[in-house]
Each structure stands twice: as C-alpha cells, then as structure tokens.
Design a protein around this nucleic acid. Structure first.
Length: 120
RNA sequence: GAAGUUCGCUAGGCAAUCGCUGCGCACGAGUUGCGUGGAGGAAAGUCCGGGCUCCGCAGAGCAGGAUGCCGGUUAACAACCGGGCACCGUGAGGUGACGGAAAGUGCAACAGAAAACAUACCGCCGAUGGCCUGCGCAAUGCGGGAUCAGGCAAGGGUGAAAUGGUGGGGUAAAAGCCCACCGCGGAACUGGCGACAGUUCUGGCACGGCAAACCCCAUCCGGAGCAAGGCCAAAUAGGGGGGCAUGGCGUGGCUCGCGCCGCCUCCGGGUAGGCUGCUGGAGCAUCACGGCAACGUGGUGCCAAGAUGAAUGAUUGCCCGGUGUCCUUCGGGACAUUCGACAGAACCCGGCUUAUCGGCGAACUUCCCGC
RNA sequence: GCGGGCGUCGUAUAACGGCAUUACCUUGGCUUCCCAAGCCAAAGACGUGGGUUCGACUCCCAUCGCCCGCU
C-alpha cells in the first residue's frame, strides 16, 4: 500500500503510529547514539523509511521545547527520507538540550542518519 | 519638561520555495489537483466556579469543606462593580481573610511585683488609731519621729502587651474622687435599602490581646469525570476450589433512604479496533436603549483550530525594531548580529494566579520652567 | 484528566508557636613512635516570597522543585 512517493513529502504513512510498531523497533535493539539524539532502527521491508519520535518530559519540561525538538527531527527526516534505507526509525532524546542551539541539534541528527547501515 | 498613578490595546511585517493538517469542490479516483481555514494573552499552573455526561430522583442527617463589612452584577464563584470603615501615599491613587472575645475551652517563652483576677517589688503617705518622744500642772491641747495597724497606685522598672489619655481641681498621699477636652460604652433622634455616619443626652471607665488556636454564628456545597458517556464491528468460555447470604452491588467519608439480585475471592483463560462525543457557544463584531459601574435588554451582521506517537513548521530574501563597531556634513549612514519575550490548544466556558523582550494610546496627579 | 505526599547543616533524621536535636562526615586539640579507635571542642541547615502573631521550621496564602497513585 505504501508507494515510494517521490519528493520531500512526509505523510501519515511515513510515521509510526501504534504501540506495537514502537515496541518492535525498541525490541530490535539497534541503536546509534549521538550527543543529544538517539536513533533506534529496524528494517521494515517497505519501500520507504518511517519515523517515530519520543521526547521525555523529564528531559524537556515544557511542551514548547518538546515540540521544537520534534520539528527539527521531522524536518531533517523529511528532507533526507529519499536517501535513507527502508527502516523504521525512532528518534529519541537522551540528554538535556537546554543549552544546545538549533544548529548543534541539527548537526547531531544529520550525522546520526548518515551512520545508518544500508539494508541488504 | 521630569517623575508618577490608573485603564486599555498589541505581541514584528511582507514575499518565494519545500512541507503538515481540518473542511469544501473536482475528476482521469490518485493516499491526485484546486480553493479555503489553522495557537494564546496567558493556550500554562489546576487555585476556585459553572455548563455537559453518567451515577434511578439528587433525597435526609452527621462528618468534612468553603465563604465571612454592606449593596449590587452573574449560569455560578474565593471573581467583578459601587459604597462604608481602617491603614499607606503630598497627590492621582493603592492595600485590607474586615463576623463574634459580656457561649465556653485554651494560649502568652524570657523578663517582670503582677499576664487576666486582680495584685503591690522598689516606692508615696501615715490624715485616723496605736507606739516612742518634746512643750505643758493638766486636757479631748500644740508639735516631732516613722516600728505597727492602715491608706494609695502618682512615679520607677519589665515586657509585644500592665486595668483609659492630657490638663486642672482635690488630698496626709492618692485615685474618674470631681471638672474640661479626647477616647470608650449605652440610649434616643436624623440621614442612608444597608454597612455606617452625624447630633444630642447619658454612664464614670467597666468589657485587655490572640479566633490564618479550638470554637460559635450566618450562608453555601451529593459524587465522579470527555480516558465522562454513547454506538458499531470482531472474538469468546464455560468451569473448578473456598467464603458470605441479619448478605452483596449501585455508593464515592459514615448512617439512613432508594434501586438491583446473587456477590466476593483464588486457580486457569480471553479482549482492549473504529466511529461518535468534538466544536455554533453563558460565541464574536457593531449599533441603540437602561444603569455611576460591573452588567442587562433589543436590533443587524458574521462563523473564526480541531490534532490523536499527537498538525499549525523550515529555509532564504527584503523591511521594521534592538544591540555592537566604524564613519559623519550631527540630519544620519555603513557593516555585523544562531538579537526579536513568555510560551503550544487536547470537551467547552467565567475568573484567579504565575511567566513575559518590548511597543502604542487615553485620562489623571505632583514638581519645575516659559507665556 | 483527577488525586495524594514531601522539601531542615555535606548526608540521614528529630523538634507544644518561644535558644533548631541527634548521628555520621569535616576541622582543630588530646592520646600514640605513627595510623586507626577513643576522648574533648568547633563549624555548618529550616526550598523561595508574602501574610497572621509580641514571636513562625511549625499557622495561612502564593510559588518553585521532587516523589507517588488512579484512569
């Protein structure tokens, strides 16, 4: 049902929705760790990569800040989705980001996505 | 011009490109195209109050909680408006949990004589009575002393607080003992819906403080929450042991009442997807009328977020504002800037509280200068 | 969404509205040839801001932070 849609779109099909989907990615236990972000990944056998997000309330108290981190992650994923291997990704935040600038956060995630292994 | 006070508004703007999402329309029916809408003044904290939904009705009592000068506004409120009183400010104005201590119980460390019922440490007096004593023939006379009986609470000192204050009279010394004024209590009258205020008379000083100590009085409050609640689909599972049925469940702090009839527990087993509620409402704008105002009534026009692993964004350019550096013909200009607050709807409203870079407007106050 | 609880020396804890307690830790001294142990002494705290009260860790209000529960 999922077609390899060309371009920079980021539709519902490119996101993870169910608890099961999240759990299976976590259960696969493949992790790339950056300075602020952590990327869990698991090959999904679909034509495109999919993204899930998790930002702990404990690390970023205000909804405002959590939304910012998610937007940054979403935007980078959207722009690079075409070039990514077909994996389910969960981008998680694991370090306090209060002092980090947007550029640092972006650079961190770009570098993590670059380290993803290609799917056989 | 400076310094303030109060009230209100605003929350950088425009464009391009790439995206997310609600709704509508279109057809070639694609997760396609076009159009259109898409965070706040606090959306926050969840401190109050409602609507809505379910608990049969929302019932009674107790417990518990809330409110607490008066009048009004409101769906309701701990909110708001107007007023009274007290305090603060030169003023515009601001602040106030502001009922009751002559119903009761309790509390007050240390200091101090004494901390709530009266008392007397240092003191003052010693008129009167007694004592000692001088004058005197003597007296119920005239003096002196200050051990006693006794009188006093003025002054001192302690404390957060000490039994009205100031002045005068008065006295042996004193004292509301007496008087004037002030304060306080009571009564009457006047004004006001009322809180309260004013005037007059009167009492002769009582009735100290703390109720954000218990408490009393008056008024109010049933419980739970949109994960409420409803609908659809799929699947199925019955059973065994034990307990209670003056019992159990609805029911939530307790009791009663009301409704239902099996219920609880252990073993073992199963399910948890979609739709709805979901945004048209105590709604917004504007006009008229009533009201000091909060607000109300009526007319006209408008429809303005609805996500659900959770949208409302990103990048670039120009402008606006700030900051820094440099230049200046003092008008300003050039360059740089990861400088542009607090912060993100989750059923919906009314308040409160807290966060917040700045900008704008109106009315008023005080001071200075000029005319 | 709803509800409950807790913030006290560096750490763990007590405290009727009236001088903030105790232990460990730290520092100094005594003791010892030296260390440890022991003995003696000292320093160090009421999350923040208001209010009530003569006086607040305690009572009230607001706020900040942390923890827990239900759905």
């Amino acid at each position: 049902m999922l077609t390899a849609h060309a371009g920079f779109g980021f539709r519902r099909a490119h996101r993870l929705h169910k608890t099961d989907e999240f759990s299976s990615v976590f259960a696969f236990k493949r992790v790339l760790r950056g300075r602020f972000y952590v990327v869990h990944y698991r090959p999904n056998g679909l034509p495109s990569a999919r993204l899930g997000l998790a930002v702990a309330k404990k690390l970023v108290r205000h909804a405002n800040g959590r939304n910012l981190l998610k937007r940054i992650a979403r935007e980078i994923f959207r722009l690079r989705r075409e070039g990514l291997p077909a994996c389910d990704l969960i981008v998680r935040v694991h370090a306090p980001t209060a002092k980090a600038s947007r550029a640092e956060l972006r650079q961190d995630l770009q570098q993590l996505l670059g380290r993803l292994p290609s799917v056989p």
